[in-house]
Amino acid sequence: MGNNLSVFPQTQSILTTPRLTLRSLSENDAPAIQEALSDRAIADTMISFPFPYPPGAAADYIRRQQTAFEQGEAVTFGIELGNEQAEQKQIIGAIEIREIDREHLQAELSFWLAKNFWKQGYMSETLPPILQYAFLDLGLNRLYAYYMTRNPACGRLLRDYGFVQEGVLRQRVRKWGEFEDVVLMSILREEW
């Protein structure tokens, strides 16, 4: 029945796709992350990123993600444009398996992509190896994700990879002074 998360990985895996490398974040990624998350368009559809993105926040984000991995609470992959053979490499986003619940073998999936890289299929390329990692390597049984109802593209992406809507959390978050409805979706290992 897969891993029960009794032994969390000591080192983070590197996953590759035809155009991308998914790897742990490093301090060197802070400038690219700071620039991407300073774009209001990113903060607009993310539940937890502030705008304006404070100076130094990217370095803090990287440290928090590294600590969460060391404590077995999360795995964050930087999405790097350019596979292992590519000369030009650039961090363009991140995808997190977070809030890992070892007892119930579930976690939240969260992701963001720099605006210049939207609508180019990068998240569609990222999800298959991440789902495989979550279900096979981590041994999870359930992954869930949230998105604001006014971001239907996120819902379509999740549905394309087998996520099922569980419900709508009415006025779950407050963004730009307005309460927003949030959709909860999930996928089970048996559905994957």
Rank of each mutant, 00 (worst) to 15 (best):
E125W: 05
N141M: 13
R142D: 09
Y144H: 15
Q120V: 07
L143P: 13
K119S: 15
Y146P: 15
Y146A: 11
A145K: 05
F117T: 03
Y147S: 08
L131D: 02
Y133C: 06
L113W: 01
G121P: 07
I130F: 02
S124C: 15
G121L: 10
T126I: 03
L113K: 00
Y144A: 03
N116S: 11
G121S: 10
P129E: 07
W118N: 05
Y144T: 06
F135V: 10
L140F: 11
S110Q: 12
E125G: 09
P129D: 02
L136K: 13
L113M: 00
T126W: 03
R142Y: 15
P129I: 10
Q132A: 12
L136V: 12
N141Y: 11
F111R: 11
G139I: 08
L131Y: 02
I130V: 09
N116G: 12
N141Q: 12
L127S: 04
D137S: 15
P128L: 13
R142S: 10
E125H: 08
A114I: 01
Y133K: 09
A114Y: 00
I130D: 00
G139R: 04
Q120E: 09
F111C: 13
K119N: 14
N141F: 12
G139N: 07
P129T: 07
T126R: 06
G121V: 11
L136Q: 13
Y146D: 15
Q132Y: 15
L127W: 04
L131R: 01
F117L: 02
S110T: 15
L140H: 07
P129K: 06
G139E: 06
A145W: 09
P128A: 13
K115P: 14
Y133N: 05
W112T: 02
M123A: 05
L138M: 08
S110D: 13
I130M: 06
W118C: 01
G139Q: 04
L143Y: 02
K119W: 10
F117W: 08
N141E: 08
L113P: 00
